[in-house]
Design a protein around this nucleic acid. Structure first.
Lengths: 147, 147
DNA sequence: CCTTGAAGCTACAGTCGCCATAGCTCTTAT
DNA sequence: ATAAGAGCTATGGCGACTGTAGCTTCAAGG
């Protein structure tokens, strides 16, 4: 039987995070000691490791909830699981494309800066003159939380 | 004189976002009509365009606040501005590296899925067996908000 | 002048995925 | 028996907004 702190150490989570997962129903309510402290078993350890690993891959808690549900119904087809992973992959790819465009513009902006006074600063000038820029400011927003 | 809605349309922002920027002191309090509605001039338009453009490049509101302050003292050296932009570039590059690692692992995971039943699903298996994975779960967290 | 409908107003709650704090209680080793 | 460390609940905060409720104001048409 593990205390919450031991579980946290073993999975690389924080104690508060584990309690948070319990609160939102992602982790089950564990047994308690006679004094009311949480006590965890191996199933809890596996489940939390699964969650943390999926988080490391950038899956949202909602997606993880779905993956856990699916993994509890072993005779169901795997295609839904696959679809969730594909969607995550597409989100990651979209973010890479977006960030590469940002990188390009930042490099260009910085490369043009000659190091003079602020009044001649190319960086500020580029930020001021929207016309020179490549990004589409009206575009659709984010996709994924930071990973 | 622009209404808040017109300003929003012209800069690709939302009305609430503009009021939020005012609330946190990023935009100045504008003049008001006799009935109490906000009225904006060209300086406000320029400032908001600057903010939106910097946001599009992933700068935090704190960094933008600093850039705006610097841009108001035109005889100061440009090196501080440059440093902020460099830092942003490094953050973007770090995020790209991280996301590319995620992409690789997601691709590997999905590629191994043969489409059978959930009980044999490679995706779930990879998520369960942390040992097979490349990412370091204990690592330092994020860098930048989603862009 | 009056009405109507869009747009604006304030204030507050919610999003996501946690993290931190305050002020307790429990466990465990000495 | 005591003291340190870990656990407990409850609540608030982060960043950067977005959405809602319940009003008021504005501009155009009749």
């Amino acid at each position: 039987m593990l205390t919450i702190g031991a579980l946290a150490r073993r999975t690389g989570s924080k104690v508060q995070t584990i309690r948070y997962y319990e609160q939102i129903g992602l982790m089950p309510e564990p047994g308690r000691s006679s004094g009311g402290q949480r006590r965890y078993g191996d199933a809890d350890l596996d489940r939390l490791a699964f969650i943390r690993h999926a988080r490391d891959l950038g899956f949202s808690l909602e997606a993880i909830r779905e993956l856990l549900d699916l993994s509890d119904t072993p005779d169901h087809s795997c295609s839904h699981v696959d679809a969730i992973a594909q969607k995550q992959l597409r989100a990651v790819e979209a973010r890479i494309v977006r960030l590469e465009a940002l990188r390009t513009e930042l490099q260009r902006m910085i490369g043009e800066c000659s190091g003079g006074a602020v009044s001649d600063c190319r960086v500020l000038e580029v930020l001021r003159d929207h016309g020179e820029c490549l990004t589409d400011h009206g575009g659709a927003g984010q996709g994924m939380p930071a990973a």
